[in-house]
Simulated scan of single mutants.
Amino acid sequence: MASVDIPLSVARALALVRSLGSVSEAARILGVSQPAVSKGIAQLEHNLGTQLLRRGNRPLGLTEEGVAVADYAHRADLLHDQLLARLEDARSNRTGTVRLGSFGSSASFQILPRTLSDFARACPGIRVEILEFPDEELEEALEDGIVDLAIMSLTDAETLEIASVASDRLVGLVSDGHPLAGRERVTPEEMAGYPFILTKGGSGPLVERWFAAADVSPKVTHTILQVNSILALVEAGLGISIIAEMALPKSEGRYRVLNLSPEAPRSFGFVRRQGTARSYAAEQFWRFCCRHPID
């Protein structure tokens, strides 16, 4: 059978006929004339090539095909009500999912647990999904709409809105027995003389710029994403490294944390593309971030 449009108004009329046994009563409840309902049913019967009413019976009844069309109206009305309920839940901040991009350990370990815990109490029905990327890929994910918003090192991108800014800095890492372990501050030239473990996390580009500003290059022997893996290699004396101070675990290890000279500060915050949020859930999370500064 070719595609046939089934007007919901006619399907609803058939549903009323099934329960009331009368086209006139169905028309009265729908607020239309009895001839209009009869014409609509007759036209649908013609388009479908089958009878929908059992016209020889009193009270009036439906054929099996008529019952199927009436059931269609019932299901359509249920779906309509469910859709309105979901939209109302979203509008009232009760449900939804936010896709949050993160630049790595600093955010995941130190910032997001407190923020997400507070947000969960404020909007318990909204789920926040965290997706981790290196900084350069995170900005692309934000621009491409893969994430709704992100916490990342701040850039000069004019297309981004920024909320809840905080500061951090880079620090050097050496093992307890390393020749630099007794130094309070280390320079790029000093660190460039030893095997170096380069982080692939969010602070990686900033580390490279710190060396480049002094016109020296580190002797990169390992490139690693996970902070715990970097610390393990440093503790084993397999290299030195630089990471964000906020990414350091709270428990002490067999390594020394050194200040950098010159210092390498960085700023980060929650960002999103300019314009309307993709969902009420994303908008609520953004507003929460704007109202609650990063500690």
Rank of each mutant, 00 (worst) to 15 (best):
G104W: 04
A192G: 07
P35H: 13
L53Y: 04
F119E: 10
S153H: 08
Y255Q: 04
P113N: 04
D5V: 15
T221G: 07
G172C: 02
A122C: 07
E143A: 09
H222T: 01
E129N: 13
S117W: 10
E184H: 14
G49F: 09
S267E: 11
D118R: 15
Y255P: 04
N47G: 14
I146L: 00
V220I: 09
Y72M: 10
R287Q: 15
R254M: 06
V17M: 08
V220G: 02
A244W: 15
L138Q: 01
S3M: 10
K200Q: 14
T63E: 04
I130E: 12
D89E: 11
Q43I: 03
L83H: 13
S38F: 02
V147I: 03
D135W: 06
Y280D: 05
S102D: 01
L87E: 14
T199R: 03
E143W: 11
A213P: 02
S175V: 13
A70P: 00
E263S: 08
S153Y: 08
A27P: 02
A68E: 06
N57A: 00
L225T: 10
S9K: 12
D71N: 05
D176V: 15
R278L: 00
D118L: 14
T97F: 01
L233R: 10
I126F: 01
F288W: 13
R256D: 15
A214C: 01
T97C: 01
E137Y: 00
R291W: 07
T95P: 00
G96S: 00
R75H: 02
A73C: 05
P195A: 06
T155A: 05
L206S: 13
G66D: 02
M246E: 08
Q82A: 15
L14Q: 07
S203T: 06
L20M: 07
A70G: 00
I240T: 11
E65N: 12
L238Y: 12
S175I: 12
F270V: 07
G177W: 15
R58T: 12
M1L: 11
E65M: 05
V227K: 03
P188L: 01
L138V: 01
I151A: 06
S24H: 11
A107Y: 05
D156P: 09
V128I: 09
A281K: 12
H46M: 07
L198V: 03
L30V: 15
L52G: 01
V234E: 08
K219P: 11
L160R: 14
L112P: 03
A15M: 03
A282S: 13
M1T: 15
R91E: 00
A68D: 05
T63V: 03
L233D: 05
N93Q: 09
A157D: 12
A90I: 13
V10T: 11
A76K: 11
P262K: 13
G40A: 02
A157C: 13
S164R: 01
S229C: 04
G31K: 13
F109R: 13
R99G: 01
I243P: 09
L160V: 12
I146W: 01
H178T: 11
G66S: 03
